[in-house]
């Protein structure tokens, strides 16, 4: 066991963990933030996506030992990350989730996309969002929600 300092949603956490523990399980079970989900454990599905300095990363295959306290980690529980609320509201407006399980990963990936490109084309949306699977098939509404959020941001 070693001690790690993690900067999650602008708060410092100190956790004890084996160095090879994936960040996903540290965030979920040691820090106790359950909004980040487990889907495949092998970087195939993207439901475990969180943001590293604003960019999406799959937390299930990233060992906690590779994370430094300088990295700003954002999870779905953040209350003030840039444009997260706008995107969440757009998601609610178009009623995007079905079971909802993949949606933390979807939303954070979309927030990162919109922060880099506030007016994404269909192709831009496809490229960014292809990383996250949804077995319920909410993709048409995810597209709609991203466009709704984009309009909101550019209003």
């Amino acid at each position: 066991m070693a001690t790690y300092k993690l900067n999650i949603n602008k708060k410092m956490y100190e956790v004890e963990a084996e160095p090879d523990t994936p960040l996903l399980w540290v965030i979920r079970d040691k820090v106790g933030l359950k909004g980040t989900k487990f889907g495949c454990g092998a970087a195939h599905c993207g439901v475990c996506t969180i943001l590293f300095n604003g960019f999406p990363i799959k937390s299930c295959t990233l060992a906690v030992a590779a994370v430094t306290p300088e990295i700003e980690i954002t999870t779905i529980e953040s209350t003030d990350f840039k444009n997260l609320k706008v995107v969440q509201d757009a998601w609610t407006k178009v009623q995007a989730p079905q079971c909802g399980y993949c949606q933390s990963g979807q939303i954070l990936t979309a927030v990162s996309l919109l922060n880099q490109n506030p007016t994404p084309s269909d192709a831009d949306i496809n490229t960014a969002m292809t990383a996250v699977l949804c077995r319920c098939g909410t993709y048409p509404r995810i597209k709609k929600a991203i466009k709704t959020a984009s309009q909101e941001l550019n209003a």
Binding site: K37, T92, P97, G100
Partner: peptide, 27 residues
Amino acid sequence: TLRQDIPMKVKGEAVFGLDVELDNMLY
């Protein structure tokens, strides 16, 4: 009609089976 489970699901607050946490729990 807007679904009441959706605001919880977009904020990561909805509790799925995997999210249950109890004192003294074993995995």
